[in-house]
Design a protein around this nucleic acid. Structure first.
Lengths: 239, 239
DNA sequence: GAGTGGTCTAGACCACGCA
DNA sequence: GCGTGGTCTAGACCACTCT
């Protein structure tokens, strides 16, 4: 975490510059960046240095390189962001795309737990969303999403909320979700689990608590999902 | 998965050569590789090409580069492999190192489930290990590990089994575990859960089913862990 | 100071997508 | 055929480690 910049390689400076351009919306999602040559000339560095910076951006999934065509800012499409962060799949690996239902949106003031999870100031206004998620029409989990309104003013003018929130964060607020820390535990079904996903009380429930972290390191969202894993399981590859 | 080699970049060939050297034990874990210059001269390619191959090996965590010293084959030490694949932590992020107890080892013939998970031939001999895992002396989960004996002959001459099996796979059989696919689900505690980790029947249990994949892509181990997540949760970072 | 990996450059040529 | 990213080379210099 120290990142002490006692010595800052050129390609790192180029990287930072490019991130800034994207984060500030100078190049919009889906747009093509200038060519390596053009960037090198503009920044007065060699093409190889630009290339190294672009390669890093590509592994960070911020841009996409297409040989023969150009370099593009990655668009947080529904499929992309869902496949990246929605980890439920049928056993064996087939991933599934969820839909949403029974959505409740309300504004309130951050409680201690919200403050701790999102590193907010006491009294900060937040948005809380509750919704059920379905795969192939059947409810498999429900989630409570807490979002700081300071980072996303008037987010609740959308109703219902789009299925893929991260695309919205990027498109309308310029907030790119770069990574997510998830904590999983097992629990027993109770009240809202029973009502929303139709399991019986005392059934096993997989709980996922996720902090979504934006490119600049700030915490953009806290999401707790409670899932029925009888037919869809949580799938992850460690490497 | 196709990897069709209709055109094979030089650095890729160098990469494959280096992997082969390591996999065949020509360079042992902990040893230093020849310098970039030496490798370039030996393989008749430029230093830049060797460098690109070495960089890829480093991101694959097969080697470690230390500026001013040299390039070393990564040693699958206990800490390393446990921190990489053992995902239980206290809420908030503090990772913990487990110990083992109550181990049972037996040889048997692969059942249909083993055959499916490990892609074995019918009738293949396997080793099954059951053991309880403790953090800070308290049992938090137990696991059943299935290992093909063809890949690890006479693995059961060790007793008890070392705490970090992957270090053993690497040291004695030259098998490097490169990645792991995990499937998580929630379940209710029953028989062996109650006996081994002291939860009451019907308590929530987090089940983790893991396939460990070796460098060459073959499936080296199937492990099912059943965990009590009241004090330690499963923690993962998606990016 | 010698040897290692890390950065940076300049230039050539290859593979690909498209008009 | 042109423009793009992808590969490969050769060489210079920098930063780090150890003797």
């Amino acid at each position: 975490m120290d990142d002490s910049p006692r010595y800052r390689p050129l390609y790192r400076q180029v990287y930072d510059f490019l991130v800034k351009q994207i984060a500030e919306g100078d190049w919009r999602p889906g747009e093509m960046l200038p060519s390596e040559q053009a960037l090198a000339a503009k920044l007065r560095v060699s093409q190889g240095t630009v290339r190294k910076a672009l390669d890093t951006l590509a592994t960070d999934k911020l841009i996409e390189r297409r040989q023969g065509k150009g370099t593009y800012v990655v668009e947080q499409t529904q499929e992309l962001s869902l496949f990246r962060f929605f980890r439920l799949a049928s056993p064996g690996g087939q991933r599934a795309i969820p839909t949403s239902a029974a959505e409740i949106v309300k504004r309130r003031v951050a409680k201690p737990a919200d403050i701790q999870q999102l590193h907010l100031d006491p009294g900060a206004p937040i948005l809380e969303i509750r919704r059920t998620r379905l795969i192939e029409g059947r409810p498999v989990c429900w989630e409570r999403i807490v979002i700081p309104l300071k980072m996303f003013p008037n987010l609740d003018r959308h109703h219902p909320m789009p299925n893929a929130l991260y695309a919205l964060y990027q498109r309308e607020y310029g907030v790119n979700i770069a990574s997510a820390d998830e904590e999983l535990s097992a629990d027993l079904a109770r009240g809202e689990d029973v009502r929303r996903i139709g399991v019986s009380a005392g059934a096993p429930i997989l709980q996922i608590s996720r902090i979504a972290v934006a490119l600049n390191g700030s915490r953009a969202e806290w999401r707790v999902s409670r899932c029925d894993t009888r037919t869809f399981i949580y799938s992850v590859q460690l490497s």
